[in-house]
Design a protein around this nucleic acid. Structure first.
Length: 835
RNA sequence: GCCGGUGUGGUGGAAUGGUAGACACCAGGGACUUAAAAUCCCUUGGGAGCAAUCCCGUACCGGUUCGAGUCCGGUCACCGGCACCA
């Protein structure tokens, strides 16, 4: 009988739907295991082939954990608020809630077709009022603790989405989502004070089992640096304060620079003799986008503040002050001390404006460029009491001195900014606050949650930067929950990152209508044991949700400091590049491609996109080869952490493997036990596959299964051998494994599905062969292999090696000076010519 | 520029400092078939040789070691992140 994957997969999916073998039981006495994948955004395009990679991997991990006796929770849901749905709705004149409902139905169909062991009864949808009720509740708790605050500030405004963006959502000066230009725009915004958690977000990483690159990226993003704030007297009534990590270079300060946005400039308007010029510079800077301002290699610009002078306390020198847009208002104090000898930016500025450059650390040539020493043994010069010290000594010495003199204090700074938490769009969680002329911002009583998103006529974004909700006057005009007087609702909504900050908690207790998650459920399931997701979420979702979790910890909602004990990350699935130069033969054709597509033409693989026509639809793969083939292929494609290129050709190899498994049923000998011929390899394979699953090395686990099947073809196999193969295959290809398990009569024999069996144990002794092949090297070069008994002693193997014909030939006229034996592996004979 | 990562056959990729290329894809050959597909078996890093066998080979240069794809120093290329963060 042929392997009819379509019928088999349908049959078992229906069975699982009925008997619910994936139901997670809160409070069960077995040890718990919480495996989590990032819940998908249900786009209109449906599932991408990239989705099954992490989903299948954690599905395999959790299937093995079930077989290991764990009470597993492996949940799924939808992160469904967001701009693409809203834009699609506008374009097609369908309400976003309908679009969302249809997209979720399509995703659900596709995910069920892949046979994942999700507990569908725990499915959540962030746009469900019963879900976002608790998103709103958490926001209100933050508001009550002062972590949510409203402020007017320049924000990143996407000109196409007509919406504000968080810093994390701006990539190379353009909108992360649509690629359009981002400009700065003054707007009143709700902010979340994530910076208050900056230290904990860095320090607590140390105890987590996250892959190193995630930790590094989060640390760099938070960007903690320690240094000093220094106060400088001026010839006005005001002191100015700068932040520096190199107080030791204070003697090298030859000027000061202030950011164009700094409020002191306005205050000094009457003191600044060339105010017109300064004001023109301020206006020019304001017109530039952040991207233009941030462009590197750009020549430094600035204007000297005539009439303003600053005193360097270290040497009493009066130095000039400039305004320049290379100083950022958002970091430090918005004023920096210029040390052109030892900071390249300052050097460029000083060179352009003819300012003195003083060397205070020896070792470089400051006439050519700033000397920014990585060597902290470099010696201080021209620096008063620091002269002769190394940089390493001078940093703490100067810090102590500055503090004693009262010139400044120690200070820690972060690159991380508070999180801009409002969006001027319709399809998001309403912010449950009311603005009362008498009482200010007042939260809606918790008993009135959820504050449901109202039905509106038009949810198109507005050019004036107001949310579509602002047009709904009956909804906007309300009464103050505090004084009962007339008041207005907040019309901005939350960003799409809000709902995903805490969804892993809701899975623990998804139907609770009295709290976000019950204490009992959280105490039982928390924290998530293994969370896999994309690197692109490292500084967005992953950081945000750690922040929310820490807040929930502080208010006693959760019992762990961190939400996720372990974090791994998968590489992207790319498509073939249709414009790759390697696709064509002649030089002319190659040149034509390079001219037309530039550096794009040099890459064999690129992100899948409709315009390139290299998109692979999982539906097509499943209907052609079946879900089990899809699962096996996407795991076999390569190292899980690295990017991989989809290959239609290679999929066939995975299908062929499953066909070969299936056809083994015709070969199987009616013998219950494990056959002697296969026993050792079976034990090796159990060990290898089990360890590989734990380490996310699914590609080599599948290779080991292929080797086992190949060996069965060579040796024949017993029913007992088959039983083991099916147990090992079951996490990878659950449908075919169950069908074969049933057809072979194992289901009847054990009264269980394969997935419900225990993961087989291996006997270490049986993974070892009685006879070993050992390599024989002569002077480090492989010359022969010999067969010796397992664990044979050194003497035995050396004499066996020397008896080998090929080795004998090498030894002619030579004398043996040394032997190196690596037990059961190799013998290295060191020879030298006789005499 | 800074931080992190990668570089292995025609291709995807394997290799706790110990037999480089497991397992696949592609290609070639054979069996079965009227034929094709499917299936099964064999060959498949490069070079020399009838052969036994030998030489070369993990981006490049050097080092440590009995032994290096793996460790160390340097160079180049590519990928990801950050980027005037003082």
């Amino acid at each position: 009988m042929k392997y009819d994957f379509a019928a088999i997969e349908k049959k078992w999916q229906d069975r699982w739907e009925e008997v619910k073998p994936y139901a997670a039981i809160t409070g069960d006495p077995r040890p718990k295991f919480y495996g989590l994948i990032e819940f998908p955004y249900p786009s209109a395009a449906g599932l991408h082939v990239g989705h099954p990679r992490p989903f299948t991997a954690i599905d395999i991990v959790t299937r093995k954990k079930r077989m290991d006796g764990y009470n597993v929770i492996f949940p799924i849901g939808y992160d469904a608020f967001g701009l693409p749905t809203e834009n699609y709705a506008i374009k097609n004149h369908i309400h976003p809630s309908i679009v969302t409902r249809d997209n979720i139905a399509n995703f659900t169909r596709q995910l069920k077709m892949l046979g994942y062991g999700f507990d569908w009864d725990r499915c959540v949808d962030t746009t469900d009022p019963q879900y976002y009720k608790w998103t709103q509740w958490i926001f209100l708790q933050m508001f009550k603790k002062g972590l949510a605050y409203k402020t007017t500030m320049p924000i990143n405004w996407c000109t196409s989405c007509k919406c504000g963006l968080a810093n994390e959502e701006v990539v190379e000066g353009v909108c992360e989502r649509c690629g359009s230009e981002v400009v700065r725009r003054e707007k009143s915004q709700w902010m979340l004070a994530i910076t208050k958690y900056a230290d904990r977000l860095i320090d607590d990483l140390d105890d987590l089992d996250y892959i190193e690159r995630v930790k590094v990226q989060q640390k760099n993003w938070i960007g903690r640096s320690t240094g000093c704030e220094l106060n400088f007297k001026t010839n006005t009534d005001d002191e100015v304060t700068v932040y520096t990590t190199r107080a030791d270079t204070l003697f090298g300060v030859t000027y000061m620079v202030i950011s164009p946005e700094h409020p002191l400039l306005e205050k000094w308007q009457n003191r600044i003799e060339n105010w017109d010029e300064v004001q023109a510079y301020k206006e020019a800077a304001a017109r530039k986008s952040d991207f233009e301002r941030g462009e590197l290699n750009k020549e430094k610009t600035g204007v000297r503040l005539q009439g303003i002078e600053v005193c360097n306390p270290a040497n009493g020198m009066q130095v000039p002050m400039f305004v320049s847009d290379y100083v950022l208002m958002g970091y430090g104090t918005g004023i920096v001390m210029g040390v052109p000898g030892h900071d390249q930016r300052d050097w460029e500025f000083a060179t352009k404006f003819g300012l003195p450059i003083v060397e205070v650390v020896s070792g470089g040539d400051i006439s050519k460029e700033a000397f920014v020493s990585k060597d902290d043994n470099a010696i201080m010069v021209n620096s008063g009491f620091l002269n002769g010290m190394s940089v390493k000594e001078a940093i703490p010495a100067m810090k102590d001195y500055v503090i004693r003199q009262g010139w400044g204090k120690e200070k820690t700074n972060y690159k991380l900014r508070d999180w801009v938490f409002t969006r001027q769009r319709y399809w998001g969680e309403p912010i449950p606050l009311v603005d009362c002329p008498k009482c200010g911002w007042v939260p809606i009583p918790e008993s009135k949650l959820p504050l449901v998103l109202p039905q509106v006529e038009s949810y198109e974004p507005t050019d004036d930067g107001e949310s579509p909700l602002s047009k709904m006057t009956d909804w906007v005009n309300t009464t103050c929950p505090c004084c009962g007087g007339p008041a207005k609702r907040e019309t901005d909504t939350m960003p799409n990152w809000a709902g995903s900050c805490w969804y892993y908690l809701r899975y623990m207790d998804p139907h609770n209508d009295s709290c976000a998650v019950s204490k009992e459920a959280e105490a039982y399931w928390g924290p998530v044991d293994w969370y896999n997701g994309g690197m692109e979420h490292t500084t967005l979702h992953l950081l945000y949700s750690r922040f929310w979790h820490k807040f929930l910890y502080d208010i006693g909602v959760v019992h762990t400091k961190e939400p996720y004990a372990k974090r791994t990350s998968h590489g992207m699935i790319l498509g073939r590049n249709p414009h790759y130069v390697g696709n064509v033969e002649t030089e002319e054709e190659k040149q034509a491609l390079i001219e037309k597509y530039g550096s794009q033409a040099l890459r064999p693989s690129v992100k899948m996109s409709k315009s390139l026509g290299n998109v692979v639809n999982p539906d097509d793969v499943i209907s052609a080869y079946g879900a089990d083939t899809m699962r096996v292929y996407i795991m076999f494609i390569g190292d899980f952490e690295k990017t991989a290129t989809w290959s239609d050709e290679a999929v066939k190899g995975s299908k062929r493997f499953l066909d070969r498994c299936w056809n083994l049923m015709d070969l199987v000998q009616d013998e219950a036990g494990v056959s002697a011929k296969n026993e050792s390899l079976i034990h090796k394979t159990i060990k290898k596959v089990g360890e590989d699953i734990e380490n996310l090395k699914m590609n080599t686990a599948i290779a080991a299964l292929m080797t086992l099947v190949n060996e069965f073809y060579a040796n024949g196999l017993s029913r007992g051998d088959m039983e083991y193969l099916l147990l090992l295959l079951s996490p990878f290809a659950p449908h075919i494994a169950e069908e074969m398990w049933e057809q072979m009569g194992f289901a009847a024999k054990h009264g269980k599905m394969a997935m419900q069996m225990s993961w087989p144990a291996y006997d270490e002794a049986k993974t070892v062969d009685a006879v070993r092949e050992m390599a024989v090297q002569v002077n480090g070069k492989l010359r022969a292999t010999i067969l010796v008994p397992n664990d044979a002693d050194d003497e035995t193997v050396v004499s066996a090696a020397c008896a080998d014909e090929k080795v004998k030939r090498q030894m002619e006229g030579m004398q043996l000076v040394k032997t190196i034996v690596v037990k059961n592996k190799l013998i290295n004979l060191i020879l030298k010519p006789q005499n």
